[in-house]
């Protein structure tokens, strides 16, 4: 299925949850925050958050800025 990940189209296996996506992106253990369709998803809910076709996901981290 297709989702929009950080503004880009991204293909996922069917029946994928957020935890799996984070693992596949090799982002496990990184300090990040995730928004699914403009709602924050707490880290504790990654496993229980099933993704569906057309979802918009934003994954952000902290970088240098003033």
């Amino acid at each position: 299925m297709e989702i929009v990940l950080n503004g880009e189209s991204h293909t996922l296996p069917a029946d994928c949850n957020l935890e799996r996506l984070i693992t596949d992106l090799q982002l496990t253990g990184k300090r990040l925050a995730v928004e699914l369709n403009q709602e924050i998803v707490p880290r504790s809910q990654f496993t229980d958050t099933r993704l569906k076709s057309g979802d918009h996901i934003e994954i952000v981290h902290a970088i240098g800025g003033g």
Binding site: E8, L25, I63, G64
Partner: peptide, 10 residues
Amino acid sequence: TVAIRRTNIG
């Protein structure tokens, strides 16, 4: 201060 930005995928 830090900025919040999209993670670079890949």
